[in-house]
Amino acid sequence: MADISAASVALPRATADKAARARLAYLDGWRGLSIALVLIGHFFPVRGINLGVLGVEFFFVLSGRLMGEILFIERFPLKKFFKRRFSRIYPALLVFVTSAMIGLSGTFIGFKWKAALTALTFTYNYAGILITRAGALDHIWSLCVEEHAYIILALISVVVTGRGNVVRLLVTLSLLAMANGAISYWALGMDYEHSYWRTDVHIASILLSASICLLKHDDRLPAFLKSPYVSLVSAAAAILLFLDPVPTPIHYLLAVPLLALAVNTLDTSSRHLTGLLSSRPMVMIGLWSYSLYLWQQPFYKFVAEQGSAPIPMLAAVFACALCSYYLVEKPARAWLNRNW
């Protein structure tokens, strides 16, 4: 009887572990899809839609979901959370910025220490539009938004009590940020960078996804959103709303909420979708996505502004990114998490 009882206890745990691994796989696959959209949009642009911009939104809504789970559901210790964030982000970023500053010196996208400093202090999304800008670092704006969002979400997790209050605050801040973007772009006539690089605008994507994550966890989403087709339909509708003829603010007022819904309803989506996202190529690209995102920018600039052939440039991106992942990002992260 004792052996049978032990087996009956172990089996659900093994099943739960298997389910957790599968869930992690399709979220890694979503990350892989995100970077694939960025790379296609930059190196093989599709007429009628900016896939690079769309890919960034795929990243943002995934970050919102993960932060909602980590900070508000799992209640991950903040000290450990920020250590993990540092070990995940900073070593690879430092190597990229330093290498790019040296390697690109004298080229049309060369930059100096002031621009490098804004990237390394996560202020580039404001400094890049107000003070100094470097084409090889233009993608760092999105990393800045993410890091700022993590700090804000961490503060909310400490200061605000009650799940309902947290959700209401996240939704309110999201709506204010989306309105801020629409006003900046439409009423004030600012261009895309001056409107949507800013954290006070673009944080909406992350906060809104985090709020949907919490509503889903508390089973407060409407029943019809539990359909296995909601994720796919929402993502497809969001992509259509990102088409070029659609005004830019509509991308963020309507399409981003749909993407946030899509990533948060993956758990109940059809096996066809999660199976595709869990495929080995998608998962591997997802694991490499941060290094790929860091290193694609300077090569993209050579393609877009100098007419360089996209295939060799993309091959160079993968070469640099794989070196970054296996020689810097992965070992540095493991060492810091183990010893710090």
Rank of each mutant, 00 (worst) to 15 (best):
D267K: 07
A237H: 11
S205P: 00
Y196N: 04
L243Y: 14
Y196C: 06
L277H: 10
I203Y: 02
A236Y: 09
L221N: 04
S278N: 12
G286D: 05
F224M: 15
S184P: 00
V256C: 04
S270W: 02
A187R: 05
K226W: 15
I183P: 00
M178Q: 09
M190V: 01
P257T: 10
I212F: 11
G181V: 00
D267F: 08
L276A: 10
L254Y: 03
S234Q: 09
G162Y: 02
D244N: 15
M178H: 02
T199I: 07
T265C: 13
D191S: 04
A255L: 10
F242C: 11
S211C: 13
L225M: 14
W186S: 10
H202R: 15
V171Y: 07
S184T: 05
L276Q: 04
L208Q: 13
A235S: 10
L243I: 04
K216P: 00
T199Q: 00
S174Q: 02
S279P: 15
A210Y: 01
L266P: 04
D218K: 14
D267W: 09
S195L: 05
R220Q: 15
S157P: 07
V230G: 02
P249N: 10
S270N: 13
T248S: 08
I212E: 05
S227H: 12
M282E: 02
L243Q: 15
S174T: 06
F242P: 00
L277W: 02
M178A: 02
D218N: 14
D218L: 10
L243S: 15
L170E: 01
P245Y: 13
L258P: 09
V233T: 15
R163G: 13
G189Q: 01
Y185A: 03
L240R: 12
L170Y: 01
V233E: 06
Y185G: 00
V158M: 15
A177Y: 05
W197M: 09
T199W: 02
A235F: 06
Y229Q: 11
L241W: 03
A210N: 06
I206V: 15
P222I: 01
C213D: 05
E193I: 01
A204K: 00
I250Q: 12
H217V: 11
I250N: 09
T265K: 04
H251I: 02
L259H: 03
S174K: 03
V256I: 15
G164A: 08
L240K: 13
P228V: 08
G162D: 08
T265H: 07
F224W: 15
N165Y: 12
S231A: 15
L207W: 14
L225I: 13
P247H: 11
L225A: 11
I250K: 14
L266G: 02
L169W: 01
S195T: 07
S157V: 11
V166M: 07
I239M: 14
Y185R: 03
S227T: 12
L258M: 12
E193S: 08
S231M: 10
S227G: 10
Y192I: 07
S195K: 03
L276F: 12
L232G: 08
R220H: 13
I156G: 06
S157F: 09
S209N: 09
L266Y: 07
N165G: 15
S278V: 02
E193D: 11
N180M: 07
